Amino acid sequence: NQASVVANQLIPISTHLTLVMMRSEVVTPVGIPAEDIPRLVSMQVNRAVPLGTTLMPDMVKGYA
């Protein structure tokens, strides 16, 4: 099972991601792979992401 990136807190819209905001967890459905966490740092979310939500490629500007 592959770990995905999950929000560690509420991430407001247009926030630049930091390591503190993300954790890796095995979830269904599978989202952005956990090994991409370093790549996600300083990218922006294009919507509010609630605590515990799996980050999907379409939620992060410039990821997909």
Rank of each mutant, 00 (worst) to 15 (best):
V27H: 04
P12D: 09
G62Q: 07
M56P: 01
S24G: 15
T18P: 00
V60K: 00
V45K: 00
L40Q: 00
S24F: 06
S42I: 03
G52D: 11
G52A: 06
P33C: 15
N46D: 10
M56L: 11
R23S: 06
K61T: 15
L17G: 00
T18W: 03
S42W: 14
M43L: 11
I37L: 13
G31T: 01
A7M: 04
G52E: 04
S24Y: 10
L10C: 15
G52L: 04
T54F: 03
G31H: 02
V41W: 03
P12W: 04
T53C: 09
R39T: 14
T54N: 02
P29F: 04
P38W: 13
S24E: 12
G62A: 08
V26P: 08
S42Q: 10
L55N: 01
L17I: 11
N1V: 15
V5E: 00
L51M: 13
S42Y: 12
S4Y: 04
I11G: 00
L55W: 03
K61M: 14
Y63E: 04
T28D: 15
I32W: 00
A34F: 07
R47N: 07
I37G: 03
M21R: 00
S24C: 08
L55F: 13
V45T: 11
V41N: 03
Q44F: 07
G31K: 00
N46P: 02
T18D: 05
S24V: 11
A3T: 09
S42C: 15
P12A: 09
S14D: 15
Q9P: 00
T15E: 08
V41R: 05
H16I: 14
Q44N: 04
S4Q: 01
L40Y: 01
Q44A: 13
P38E: 09
S24A: 12
T18L: 08
P29Y: 04
S4D: 03
V41F: 05
L51K: 12
P33V: 08
N8W: 04
D36E: 13
V41C: 06
Q2S: 13
P12C: 05
V20R: 14
A48E: 14
V30T: 14
V60Y: 02
S24M: 09
Q2H: 10
V20G: 12
Q9W: 09
L51F: 13
V6S: 02
L40E: 00
V26H: 12
A34I: 06
M21F: 03
N8L: 04
A48T: 15
A34K: 06
V27G: 03
N8A: 14
G31P: 00
P29S: 04
Q44G: 04
V45D: 00
A7Q: 01
P33T: 07
P50H: 08
S4L: 02
M43K: 08
E35V: 12
I37W: 03
D58E: 12
P38S: 13
R47Y: 09
I13D: 10
N46E: 08
D36A: 13
M22L: 14
H16N: 09
V30G: 08
T15V: 08
Y63R: 04
V27P: 01
S42V: 04
E25W: 07
T53Q: 11
A64M: 15
I13M: 12
A48C: 15
I13L: 12
V27R: 10
V41E: 05
Q9L: 13
D36K: 09
V26A: 09
V30S: 13
A3Y: 12
I11P: 01
M56W: 05
N46L: 15
Y63G: 04
M59R: 00
D58F: 11
E25T: 06
H16R: 14
N46S: 13
P29T: 05
S14Q: 12
T18S: 10
T15A: 14
P12H: 09
M22N: 00
Q44M: 14
Q2Y: 15
V27D: 02
G31N: 01
N1F: 12
P38A: 12
H16C: 15
N46A: 09
G62T: 06
S42L: 09
P50W: 05
G31I: 00
I32S: 01
V27I: 07
V60A: 02
G62I: 04
V60L: 07
L55P: 01
V41P: 00
V60T: 02
L19F: 14
I13K: 11
M59H: 09
R23M: 05
R47D: 06
P12E: 10
V26K: 07
L55G: 02
E25Q: 13
A34G: 15
S24P: 12
Q2C: 12
L10K: 14
V30I: 13
I13P: 11
V49K: 01
L10M: 13
M21Q: 04
I11H: 01
D36S: 10
G52T: 03
L17K: 00
V26Q: 12
D58L: 11
R23W: 04
P50T: 10
A3G: 13
P12K: 08
P33I: 10
P50M: 08
P57G: 07
S14P: 01
S14C: 10
N1Y: 15
S42R: 10
P57N: 05
L51A: 14
H16M: 14
P38Y: 14
G31M: 02
K61I: 13
I13V: 14
M21D: 04
M56Y: 10
L40T: 02
N8P: 01
V49Q: 02
R47I: 09
V27K: 09
A64F: 07
D58G: 12
N8S: 15
R47C: 08
P33L: 08
G62C: 12
L19C: 11
V26W: 09
V49A: 04
A34Y: 07
Q2I: 12
V41Y: 03
S14M: 14
R23Q: 04
V6T: 06
M43V: 04
V6C: 06
I32R: 00
V26T: 12
L51G: 10
E35I: 10
V60D: 00
S24H: 08
P12V: 05
Q9E: 12
L10H: 12
R47W: 06
Y63L: 05
M59E: 01
S14H: 15
H16G: 07
E25I: 06
M22F: 05
Q44C: 12
I13T: 12
V45C: 06
V6M: 04
P50E: 09
P38H: 14
A34N: 06
I11R: 01
L19Y: 14
R47P: 01
L17T: 00
S14I: 04
A64S: 13
V49Y: 03
P57Q: 07
S14L: 13
P57H: 09
I13E: 15
T15I: 06
T53A: 14
V6Y: 02
M43N: 04
I37E: 01
V30Q: 15
P57W: 08
A48I: 14
E25M: 13
N46M: 13
A7R: 02
T15N: 04
I11T: 00
A48H: 10
P50N: 11
V27T: 13
R39K: 14
Y63T: 03
S24T: 14
V41G: 00
L40I: 10
P50Q: 10
M22T: 00
E35H: 11
T53E: 12
E35F: 10
T18F: 03
A64V: 11
L55T: 01
E35S: 11
Q44E: 11
A34Q: 07
I11L: 08
M59Y: 12
V49M: 05
A34W: 06
L51N: 13
L19D: 05
N8K: 08
H16K: 13
A48K: 13
L51Y: 15
K61G: 08
Y63I: 04
G31Y: 02
V26L: 12
V5F: 03
V6G: 00
V41Q: 06
A34M: 08
N46T: 10
A48F: 10
P33W: 10
A7D: 00
Q9Y: 15
P57I: 05
M59I: 05
V5I: 11
D36P: 01
R47H: 07
V27W: 03
S4H: 01
G52S: 07
R39Q: 10
Q2K: 08
N46G: 06
K61L: 14
A64D: 13
M21C: 04
I13G: 09
P50S: 13
P29L: 05
A7K: 02
Q44L: 07
E25C: 11
V60E: 02
V41I: 10
R23F: 04
I32K: 00
M21N: 06
S42G: 14
P29H: 05
T53N: 09
K61Q: 15
M43G: 02
S14A: 14
V41L: 13
R47M: 11
T54A: 06
R47Q: 07
D58W: 14
P38V: 09
G52W: 04
Y63P: 04
E35C: 13
E35R: 07
M59L: 04
Q9A: 11
I13R: 13
Y63C: 04
V26N: 10
T54Y: 03
T28I: 11
S4W: 03
V27E: 03
L55K: 01
M56G: 04
L17M: 06
V5N: 02
S4R: 02
D36C: 12
P57K: 07
E25Y: 08
A64C: 15
T53G: 11
A64L: 14
T53H: 14
H16Y: 14
